[in-house]
C-alpha cells in the first residue's frame, strides 16, 4: 500500500519547467527528506503533492481519503489579523479542546494556547504549526523547510520531535530541508532534486552519490558518520547511486 505516488510528474511554474519526470512513491511510516539547491523544484513538488500545483504532465495518485498535515515554509500573519494559538489550530475545522491541548503538548508547547501568534518566537511558531498539522490526524506529515530561521540546536530539537511524532502517530513524514546534517541523519530515505530526481536512496547512499557530491560537496559525510555509524556498509554502492538505486537499497 502506498500513500502517494507520482508517475512521470512534470511541473511548471510561471511558464518554466521546474521539475520533470518524477517517479516517486511514499509508503506509510517512512521519513523521506527532499534535498536540492534553490530552485531545484523541492517546494513545487510538495505543492503538487498537496494539490496546490497542477501537474503539467504525468499524474499523482493519492490513497483515497489521504489526510495530510502540512507545515508551510513560512506563514506570514498580517499584523492586522488578531489570532490566538487556540484559534489558529482550529483552522479550518473546529477541534475539541482536549484534542488541541494534546496536540500542543505533543508538539512541545502545551502552555501557549492563549498567546497571540505574532508574539511567538520562531521555534514556538514552528511547533504550533506542527500542532495544527497533527490535529488533521495525518497519514502524511509534509514539512517545507520547517526549521528555517531556527538555530542548529533548535532545528535538531525540532527534528527529534518529528521522529517522536512519527513513532507515536505512525504517520509518514516528507520534508524539504537545507539542514543537511541533521535531516539526513533523521531520514529513512533521501530524494535529491535538481530539476529532476538526480539521486535517491538511504542517506549514506545519497551522500556518496557523485550527483549529490557535485551539488553539495562532501561536507556532510563526517556529520553523517557521527549520526549513523551503523549504515556504513552501503558506502561501496556509490558508483551507481542514482535513480533506480532506491529499489536496491530497499532490499538491502
Amino acid at each position: 500500500m502506498t500513500l502517494i505516488q507520482t508517475s512521470g510528474l512534470t511541473l511548471r511554474h510561471d511558464g518554466q519547467t521546474v521539475l520533470r519526470n518524477v517517479n516517486f512513491t511514499l509508503r506509510p511510516g517512512e521519513i523521506v527528506t527532499i534535498v536540492g539547491p534553490n530552485g531545484s523544484g523541492k517546494s513545487s513538488l510538495l505543492r503538487a503533492l498537496i494539490g496546490a500545483l497542477k501537474p503539467a504532465a504525468g499524474k499523482i495518485t493519492r490513497k483515497p481519503d489521504l489526510r495530510i498535515g502540512y507545515v508551510p515554509q513560512k506563514l506570514q500573519i498580517d499584523g492586522t489579523l488578531p489570532l490566538t494559538v487556540r484559534r489558529f489550530v482550529n483552522l479550518p475545522r473546529r477541534r475539541p479542546a482536549e484534542a488541541i491541548q494534546a496536540a500542543l503538548t505533543t508538539a512541545g508547547v502545551p502552555e501557549l494556547a492563549e498567546r497571540q501568534m505574532v508574539d511567538l518566537s520562531g521555534g514556538q511558531f514552528q511547533r504550533v504549526l506542527l500542532a495544527r498539522a497533527l490535529l488533521e490526524k495525518p497519514d502524511l506529515l509534509i514539512l517545507d523547510e520547517a526549521t528555517q530561521g531556527l538555530d542548529q540546536p533548535g532545528s535538531a530539537a525540532f527534528y527529534r520531535q518529528i521522529e517522536t511524532v512519527r513513532q507515536d502517530f505512525g504517520c509518514a513524514v516528507l520534508m524539504v530541508s537545507h539542514d543537511l546534517h541533521v535531516v539526513m541523519a533523521a531520514s529513512d530515505r533521501v530524494l535529491c532534486l535538481n530539476g529532476h530526481v538526480c539521486c535517491e536512496g538511504t542517506p549514506e547512499t545519497v551522500a556518496d552519490a557523485p550527483e549529490y557530491r557535485a551539488l553539495f560537496g562532501t561536507g556532510t559525510q563526517g556529520a553523517l558518520a557521527l549520526y549513523r555509524h551503523d549504515h556504513d556498509h552501503h558506502h561501496h554502492h556509490h558508483s551507481d547511486a542514482c535513480e533506480g538505486h532506491q529499489r536496491e537499497t530497499e532490499n538491502a
Binding site: I50, L75, I77
Partner: peptide
C-alpha cells in the same frame, strides 16, 4: 476564508 487568508497552501492541504 480565514485558512485561505493565512496561507493558501495550508488551506489546500486541509
Amino acid at each position: 476564508l480565514l485558512a485561505a487568508t493565512l496561507n493558501p497552501d495550508l488551506a489546500q492541504a486541509s
